[in-house]
Design a protein around this nucleic acid. Sequence first.
DNA 1: GACTTAATTGCGACTGAGTTGCACAAAATT
DNA 2: AATTTTGTGCAACTCAGTCGCAATTAAGTC
Lengths: 120, 120
Amino acid sequence: MKKEINPDTSSLKLTTARKAILEILHHSKHPLSYEDIKNSLLMDKATFYRNIAKFEEEGLIDSFESSDKKRYFELRKSPHAHFICKVCQKIECMNLPCTFEMEAYTIENVIIKGKCPHCR
Amino acid sequence: MKKEINPDTSSLKLTTARKAILEILHHSKHPLSYEDIKNSLLMDKATFYRNIAKFEEEGLIDSFESSDKKRYFELRKSPHAHFICKVCQKIECMNLPCTFEMEAYTIENVIIKGKCPHCR
DNA sequence: GACTTAATTGCGACTGAGTTGCACAAAATT
DNA sequence: AATTTTGTGCAACTCAGTCGCAATTAAGTC
Ligand SMILES: [Mn+2]
Ligand SMILES: [Mn+2]
Ligand SMILES: [Zn+2]
Ligand SMILES: [Zn+2]
């Protein structure tokens, strides 16, 4: 029997490396960078980034760049904005709907930067 | 007579390099990266980035990172969000107020990513 | 104007997150 | 089992941005 991550749409094999990445993202309350998790990973960083790219193509995860020049990854869930503190760099998932009146645009990602309650 | 960029708060000398950067930013309708303007600049890129850092300390300009891993700069004006198209990478200043209910947070920057009217 | 000095600059070397080429390994297909 | 496709480790690479340092320049004082 073929083991796949998303049998309906995907042709990705469910490898040890992929399971490890998805497992870690699954257990995190906020987006993570490669730096954040490299010590928990046995795979090479090229493998990590290549799998991240595949996951993103499949719509399994989302990512964005922070002000620290790193990319942050999380499993795709219901759309929500992210807050990045410019002082402590902490990233938080914000569960406010924040609708914009931008008819002609497709919004995929909202990032709010500023100072968190601790840092201001 | 002392020539300063912002006589009240700044100790920055008004050099040719600084005038050139501010002049270019002043005439742009949207944020620019170093890449965007390097051909119009005579200064070294180290000089450019060092001056950008000073301007930012002084609150003269704002910046943010796009998905293309470049930083974009613009003169500080009335607060507004930016839209970045994930397909064509075009950056637009959005003049919608978009208020969030985030009492304890200080919002300095809002970036919306998605697909622009042309690309979706 | 000429003199002084701290701020600014150009240059080249460096950094570090992310990417790529390639040969080898593991699945899947026949 | 042989072939084809997909995934992996390793090392080399890319490229926006940074840094150390010696040379230059803006601005204050005479
Ligand atoms: Mn989130
Ligand atoms: Mn703007
Ligand atoms: Zn903070
Ligand atoms: Zn577009």
